[in-house]
Every structure is written in C-alpha cells, then in structure tokens.
Design a protein around this nucleic acid. Structure first.
Lengths: 351, 351
DNA sequence: TTGAAAGCGTTACCAG
DNA sequence: CTGGTAACGCTTTCAA
C-alpha cells in the first residue's frame, strides 16, 4: 500500500475529479510508476501489466495529465503561433497547414491573433508563461522582445519576416524576386507608366514588395511612377486606386498592388469608378495567389506563394530547433510562381 | 534558509534553466510563498515586500510558470477551439473574434483545425489531456465523444451546430429563417423555378440551409426544384452549376447556394459557361455575408451572419460555464440580415 | 502580513 | 521488468 497521502476522491469515483495514475494503479493493483510507464513511448512494461493497466484506465476514463507531464519533462509540447491579421485571406491557409503539420508531430498550437503587427508585447509574456517549446510568428518582434525570448532559450521561426541585426530562423517567399518578375513582364509587354499601391507601413512584407518593384523599375529605366499607400484589403484597394487617379490625372499603364485583395479592389474601382477595361486599358497585378484571386471575374495576374511548402518547412524548422536547440539559425527562401491571369496584358509565356 | 532540496542551477543563474519563484525569493531575501503571492491577483503583500520581489523578478527575468500554476489550481486557463475547414472564408473572422474575446479574459486558445467535420476523434483526446477549461466547437461531436467530454465535466459550446438528444449550449445563426427570407423575396419577385446548391453531407449547417429553403419553397407552392450537391467552395460552386444546367436542360429562375463561395462560383459559371446575365437572366443567392461576397463583380444577395456578436456571445457563454459549471444549458439563436446585393432580382426594400 | 510545509499529477532515477 | 521516492514550480492552508 502506498504511503502517499491519498487524494480526496478515492472513495469510489463518484467525485467530480478526474482519475489520476494513482487511481489507475490502485484499480489495477500495480504501482503508480508502472501506470506512468504504460502511457509513455519507450516504455518497458510486460504485456500482462500493460493489459491490466489499460483495462483499469479505460474503466476509469483515465488520461495522462499533459500539464503535469509538462511540468516534469520541461516540455509543454505546445508551440505558439502568432498571426497578425487573421482575416487577411492569406493567413488561414498558412494556419491550417501549420496546425496540421504540428499536430502530426504531437504538438499543440497555442494561437495568438494580433490586431496589428505591433501588438506583440502582451503576447510574448503569455507565451513565456505557458512555457511553449517554440514560437512561429508571422508578426514582427522588437529587439527587446527578441531578447526576452532568447533569454528563455525558446527557438523562434519567422514566417515571411526577418529581423535585422539579429540571427534568426526564417522561412519566406522571395518577395523582391516576385516583384521583379512582375515588373519585367509588364515592361517587356510595353508598359511605361506605373502606379504602385503600397501596403501598410508596419508590414515588412509590404515594404519588401514595394522596394522590389521600385528597384526593378529603376533598373528598367522607368521613371513615371506614382505611389499611394494604405492598409491591405479590398476596400483600401478601391480607395487607393481613386487616390492614384486623382494624383495622376490619368490612368497609368499598369498598377502593382501589394496584395491580391488590393489588386481586386483596384480592378473593381477601375471598372466601376473610371470605366476602364482590365487589362485592355490598364494592367493590374497583385501578390499572394490566394483563393479569390482565381475568381473568374478577376483572374488576377500575381505571384503565387507556395504556402503549403512554406508552412510545412517552417513547422519542420521549428521542430528541429526544439529537438536540437543548438542548431544554428537558418533562412529558407522560396520562389513564388508567376500566375498569368487576365488582369494584365503580358506577352504569352512562350514568346 | 529553506530546507527544500535546491535546484540544479542555484549556482549563479548561468545555467540554461529559467528562474523560479525560489530563485526570486532567494534574491529578494523573502520566502517563496511571498513571491507567489506578489504574482497573484488577490494578494496580500506589503508594498515594501512587493517592490523587493518585483525588482528581483525583473532582474532574473522571472515569469510565473502557468503550467505549474495550472497543476495546482486545476485551471489551465486554456480553452480548445475546434474548427473544421479553416480556409472556409467564414471561419477566420470567427476565430479572430474568439481569440480576441478570450484573450481579454486572460484565456488562451488551443487551436484544433480539422480537415473534415468527422475528424474530431483524435482531438477530443488531446483536449482532455491538456485539461482545457472549456471547449468551443464549430464541428460536430459524436454522442460517444460528448459522453467522454461530459464525464470530464468540461463545458462545451457549439457554434452554429447543435446535438440532438443532448442538452448542450449553442450559439447559432438561424439558418432556416435566413433561407425563408431569401425564398420569400425571390418568390415575391416572381421567380418560380429553382435550383438548390447543397453543401457537403457532413455539415449540419448545410443541411439546415437546404431544409429551410425546401420547406419555404413548399409553403409557397413552388414545385419546380432541382437539387445538386457538393463541397463548400468556389470550384465546387462552378461545377455544381454545370451539373444543375445539365440536369435541367435550361436555367432556373433562381439558384440558392449553400454559401457565398458557392454562389460566387455559380455566378462565374453562369456568366462564362452559359452566357447568362446575373441577375437579368438568373438570380443567384448565397449565405454568410463574408468579405468576397461584397466584391463589386459579384455583390452577392445573401444573409449576413452577425459573426462578431455571435462569436463574442459564444465566448462569453463558455466563460460563464467555466466559472459556474452548474449553469444549465442555453441556446442562443441570432437572426441574420438580408443583404440586397445585385446578384438577384428582388423587389426594392420599401415596396 | 509573512513563512513553513503539504500537495497538484506526472516523470526520472535507482535499487531490487 | 517493477516499485519506491524525489523532483517539477507553483498555490494554499495554517501558524506565527
């Protein structure tokens, strides 16, 4: 008989409390350690013992307490996933892939949804309190936040972001390359005057895209460029297009939008507000290759990110770092795919 | 000096391990219980003590271990959120609202993303192991799963679903009422022949919508009805519309689709595949009122669910049940709003 | 207000 | 292979 002070509900399982390994041990007539081993992976337990324990456990509805396990093993088997604007059309797919991949590896996802990329301060504290084994973030951290996280020795993987002056793991789509392709195609198809619809200021992705486009436009000797900016999203896209027209007086040959959602907004505003035909009167391109970009009414010319591969790569990278904390930082960049939709006048692919 | 067997890293904080309340206590020259109290809500601690502890804690980068706390308090402060198809256009907004609301209350979200509604079996086990305080689910549970959950005394709130023969909490949008409105409007505007694009078979929401529409069509004496079915989503919508046309030979007056995404698919297929003008030749309506339904090229006539209110209501309902487990089950039904888009020929609102 | 000590439900280590 | 016992880091009586 165990010397351990008994728990309050040993009087017949009528209580509200859940069964513990002690309850199972008693019911099966074995030691508590034995029960523990039966529910572990590399267990050493005879078949006979295993059967008795499992039977007792089932009868009592016993499940190992992952919280208690985490306390002793120093592994919560939870990772934090940080995402800024969940309604972004693009992130749901990322999130789905991530949770799926983590879940295959027996890792649970603690979700932190930020209103804006800058809101990370409170959540960093939460993540640390919950002792997540790793962090996968699609939002920026400040140097101070990174220091806090590093001090706690928690591996971090950035998704489509990176931190300057700081060695970090990241998985990203090469935004600049993508913009370069778009610009090249547009210029070679004869476009000479450009509008650029820039994304929100606090988004690194947005500024990479803008710089990528601007640099390549400069390379190609294009100088007639008008830039307007706003949040991501459809409504903003429409409004930005109006501002663009107001600023220029007439339509540019092509508009490069920071996201598909903005591109779609531009297309609608061009058609409805200015009676422009897309792509006959104006070419409009986006970025991401998300679902609605494929809707027939838009069929946006865009760069599709290999979301699935990126997400899986990011998850694997984080898991590796959790298992082996001394791995050095690594950056993986994926190329997007040019989607020749019908929202831009490009030369045909085989030309 | 504490009698407690010291931890391995008391030799000067150079180790990799995180600071514990013992470390802080030693650094501040107080007892460990004191540290604990300083980091609690209804604490009783003198200002002097509080200051010393906080100072020491900051120096050591101490954060209370939420896992250990959960073990002793029997409250993980985590809820499970179960969502079936995250890429559904509709769920991201729900998820964003939920996490926001929970986070305000100091509750963390453990996300379980299912591929299909039927995949809940493995995740139920996980939720129980992690001792979540409550479950909010936008996927169905089997009676067996519910029994498991009930045995563990974990409160559950269903989102847009309910369980027959089982008293459960739920928050839903009245799908049948919504379909009734759509049907009424369409019939009163003169539509007499109908196509119904049904959602996936394992979705309760989908079948409620279908039944709502069928019942009201019967009430209105409409008999010319063709039903085709498929998964939710744009591509399926297009394909379903083709099948509908093939089955009927000619276009019906109106098509009632199970979701906005399917409605959008129908619109594109009607236009591109059959050269039909929407809404002149055919009226097409959807359900949900999600973002892309508002894109100008579609402007879907639909029922908008009050997602924000629903999500907040669901979160509150669950929190109440966590705080007071004996509250009786409660069902809340919200009415949607008819959005008079331009994808259907309705009479004007003030007629 | 403060401190000592007893758990919370596991896993890890160590004899047998 | 099995059982006993010491942590894991915290909250919670209970005395002082």
């Amino acid at each position: 008989m165990s010397k351990r002070p008994k728990t309050a509900n040993n009087t017949g399982m009528t209580g509200r409390k859940r069964a513990t390994s002690y309850d199972v041990a008693k019911a099966a007539g074995v030691s508590q350690s034995a029960v523990s081993r039966v529910f572990q992976d590399g267990a050493s337990a005879s078949k006979a013992m295993r059967d008795r324990v499992v039977a007792a456990a089932n009868k009592l509805g016993y499940r190992p307490n992952a919280i208690a396990r985490g306390l002793i093993t120093q592994r919560s088997n939870m990772v934090a996933v940080v995402i800024s604007k969940l309604t972004n059309l693009y992130y749901p797919e990322v999130l789905e892939q991530l949770t799926q991949r983590f879940s295959e590896q027996g890792i649970r996802v603690l979700l932190f949804a930020l209103e804006h990329e800058g809101d990370a301060d409170k959540v960093v504290d939460q993540m640390l309190q919950y002792r997540v084994d790793g962090i996968l973030t699609a939002a920026m951290f400040t140097p101070g936040q990174m220091k806090t996280i590093d001090n706690a020795h928690i591996p971090v993987v950035f998704y489509n972001r990176t931190l300057k002056n700081h060695q970090v793991c990241s998985v990203r789509c090469d935004q600049e390359e993508g913009e370069r392709w778009l610009v090249d195609e547009l210029v070679r198809a004869g476009h000479r005057t450009f509008g650029i619809i820039e994304g929100p200021a606090d988004s690194v992705v947005a500024s990479e895209r803008k710089m990528g486009a601007l640099n390549e436009l400069a390379n190609m000797g294009i100088t007639d460029i008008t830039i307007v900016s706003g949040e991501y999203g459809y409504e903003t896209g429409r409004e930005c297009f109006s501002r663009l027209m107001a600023r220029r007086g007439s339509a540019p040959d092509a508009v490069i939008a920071a996201s598909d959602a903005m591109a779609i907004g531009c297309i609608d505003e061009a058609r409805e507000g200015y009676a422009l035909k897309v792509p006959d009167d104006i070419s409009i391109v986006g970025f991401d290759g998300v679902g609605p970009a494929r809707f027939a009414a838009y069929d946006v010319t865009t760069i599709r990110q290999p979301v699935k591969r990126m997400a899986q790569s990011a998850a694997s990278m984080l898991i590796e770092r959790i298992e082996n904390p001394d791995l050095s930082p690594e950056k993986r960049a994926f190329s997007g795919t040019l989607i020749r939709g019908s929202s831009a006048r490009l030369r045909s692919a085989d030309e």
